[in-house]
Computed example of a mutant assay.
Amino acid sequence: MARNSDLADLAASILGAGSDDRDGTGLDTAAWKACAGAGLTSLTDPDTGGTLDDAAVLLEVAGADAARLPLAETDLLAGWLARAAGLAVPDGPLAAVVTDATGGDRPAGTAGGTVTGSGGPAGTVSAALTRVPWGRSLAAVVVLDGDRVLVLDTGAAAVTEGANLAEEPRDGLTLDGVTPLATGSAPAGAAAELTLRAALARSLLLAGAARGALARSVAYAGERTQFGRPIGRFQAVQQMLAEAGAEVAAASAASAAATSTARRAGFAAPETAFAVAAAKARCSEAATAVARIAHQVHGAIGFTREHALRLVTTRLWAWRDEDGDEAFWNDRVGAAALDAGADGLWPLVTGRP
């Protein structure tokens, strides 16, 4: 796998091509084909030689360029779940769904639903799945239903179209009497790991979108003139941009630390759960501040549909709540700190004894 800087350049060359499409809302099929051809849709598959760090680089670029692709859903979530259950990963865009039967403490607003039927040899199932990311464009969904994993072809699904604030598809899928492409046993702790994986992926996307909003704001402040000089020369604007820069740095540091901890310790480790919780909470908080400052710098024009700023700021607003908002994850940070106690807090925070 290429060095991270090379990977970032490759990703930017592919994803940046569609970053000025202000009207696109569905899957960017050209970018998907390019990413798949370059091996970017399965970076965490052990057979590809990629790593979680590589996936993190890709997701930050995707966030900055407002890419219309289910990269995290396909690789970090659905691909991982299928491989963990010993199943082949289908080609094409994928999503993972955790059904209501699985239980667990999952964030509100995530994909869910129900599955009925055995799905065993020659058996069929019916499914009613809600808020499935990119549902209308998927090749398959990988469903965690209690202690089993089902891979369901979405070709025959009835689609009820929905969207988040950024107009990314969040669809309802209904399948009636379909034979699963594959079935397997769920690994222990699969639901909890999927929750952490989704939160980490969303943190990285948020960090990237915040960086994209800051870059657009800095550029605009250098171009827009008022009273005979660029507004970026006014101290008040400089102070706002500096504040946004600090938020971007904090989001990037938190998501990078969580990625490093997950790669080193694994998602089942308590320190990973703590690091991911802190990262998602911090990135969601940063999203609010950066979006506010970006629109203050741009003024009224930044709120128009025709302006590219909304592509990143609407994602900041949508993603800060998806896969757990800051309140959900701050509760987990607090609970972990209390459980660790006075003697265990420092090792939990630093990863050192």
Rank of each mutant, 00 (worst) to 15 (best):
N164T: 08
A128Y: 00
D20C: 13
I301K: 10
A254K: 10
A108Y: 02
L129P: 13
V151L: 04
A337S: 13
G37E: 05
A157I: 02
T99Q: 08
L175Y: 03
F274Y: 14
E271T: 05
L194F: 10
G119L: 09
G299D: 06
A213D: 00
A254H: 05
A139S: 15
M1K: 12
A163N: 11
G351F: 02
G222W: 04
G228Q: 09
A268T: 14
V218F: 06
L338H: 15
L40F: 04
G24M: 14
T29Y: 04
A262Y: 00
T110R: 11
G146T: 02
P347F: 09
A281D: 10
T160F: 00
G109Q: 03
R305H: 14
L165N: 11
A318M: 01
S185Y: 00
S137E: 14
V143K: 12
D91N: 12
G344R: 13
R263L: 10
L241W: 03
L69V: 10
P270E: 06
Q235C: 06
R197F: 01
R211V: 04
L204P: 03
G172C: 05
V141E: 12
T225P: 01
S19R: 15
L181C: 04
P180S: 08
F267A: 11
A258I: 02
A88F: 06
R83T: 10
E271G: 08
S203E: 02
A273W: 00
A140N: 04
D176E: 13
D6K: 12
A291L: 00
E193M: 15
G177H: 06
I231Y: 03
A262N: 02
V159P: 04
L144D: 11
K280E: 01
V297T: 12
D47M: 13
F267N: 13
H295R: 02
A85R: 13
A335W: 01
A199N: 02
A254Y: 05
V290D: 02
L173H: 01
L241S: 11
V125Q: 14
S252L: 07
L175S: 11
A191G: 12
L152N: 12
W80N: 09
A188V: 14
T174G: 08
L348Y: 06
